[in-house]
Design a protein around this nucleic acid. Structure first.
Lengths: 206, 206
DNA sequence: CTGGCGTTGACCAGGGTGGTCAGTGGATAA
DNA sequence: TTATCCACTGACCACCCTGGTCAACGCCAG
């Protein structure tokens, strides 16, 4: 493990990204370590030189991804703004940034949330429970509910807004990713996101 | 093929559902015919007695599912209502009905939309193109755009509403499915759906 | 020249693949 | 009763891929 951390950043991220991609696409059981090492451009032996097993690699990837995401979020000072949509705007921006380094991270985390393989369930389940019961409420705490229009149930509205933005994220990634040609159109994606946020503001706030 | 159609309905649907489930979960290439016959409770030989190959079975499933969905929709007289949310309410109700007979159908159709296996791409791609270019515009034609609030772009709003309802559907299925114990709480699900639709109405309409 | 170490990839036993086909059992017709 | 039929079974095929190992290699510092 320390061996892995001592690696040069570029190679390390190539391995991490290859793992996220394969696990996100196929889940733990069906994911192939052969596919991972091929994608990462390293030999089979090297992967098992750094990690003792497929399982340990998977769990490390999850921990790494979850930690990176939470740290990035809490590092921003504005995250405590009481306006839901301000806070979500920050999160969307963050998502786009992380996505540039780890294009498959969020897809990987989502599939981990649904992972049911008995091989990783115990450890993974515990980690997920912590995230969901301790981190999620924290992230959405202190929201100002008075901005919603009259006659709108805030709980249901928040749910709907979160779902909408998930889809907006998926849509942006799908739309802008295919053209791998050089720079990611970061600015355009941010602007498009703002347009959706503005629309939600006009719809749900009075 | 006629042999398959001549089967008693219960068995036929067991086979269809087993196929949808396996293909939805794993995509064409990784889906296992062994898993399908096991889930359907039939022998390996029988599946290939009805269908000439895995590929033919997959394409038949897609055609069957797409046709069933479109027919059900057009059969309802109210589908031409000019109000977007009325029309979507009809579609949500329909989705719930079909879901009772084929719990995995929509998940299967969504994954088919993303399917990239070279083995089925040519034929499947053509079918998808037709659905998307000819059926989708039809389903959303004649919508009354004047009901949206001022300052809201109808195109973007429609997109957002469609995405929201997709997530509402996923959520309902996930929430109510686990308790396989007897009857599906059809009524509760319909009411929950109506609550979300009402919320969208208050948010987006003036 | 030596030892150490990051790295390789051929190799292993085991299991799963889509598809086949000789055979079974129960129903129908003679 | 016997003969024909056919939906249906599951052992079997040749092949591919699996997670993990390990002897050997190349390159470096001492």
């Amino acid at each position: 493990m320390e061996k892995f951390l001592a690696l040069e950043a570029e190679k390390r991220e190539r391995i991490l990204n290859a793992g996220m991609k394969e696990f996100a696409a196929n889940g733990f059981d069906r994911a192939s370590t052969n596919a991972i090492v091929k994608e990462a451009g390293i030999s089979k032996g090297l992967l098992f030189h750094y990690f003792t097993s497929k399982k340990q690699f998977y769990l490390y990837l999850f921990q790494y991804g979850a930690e990176l995401t939470m740290k990035e979020f809490y590092a921003a000072e504005e995250w405590r703004k009481p306006d839901l949509l301000d806070r979500l705007e920050l999160m969307m921006g963050m998502k786009l940034e992380i996505w540039q380094r780890h294009p498959e991270l969020f897809r990987f985390l989502e599939t981990a949330y649904l992972e049911s393989s008995a091989a990783v369930q115990p450890e993974l389940g515990e980690q997920l429970r912590i995230l969901q019961n301790e981190e999620m409420p924290e992230v959405l705490s202190g929201i100002d509910l008075s901005r919603f229009r009259e006659g709108i149930e805030p709980g249901r509205a928040i749910q709907l807004i979160l779902w909408s933005l998930e889809k907006v994220g998926d849509h942006l990634l799908k739309q802008f990713k295919p053209e791998e040609s050089g720079a990611v159109p970061y600015k355009e994606m941010t602007e498009e996101t703002k347009r959706y946020l503005e629309l939600l503001r006009r719809a749900f706030y009075s």
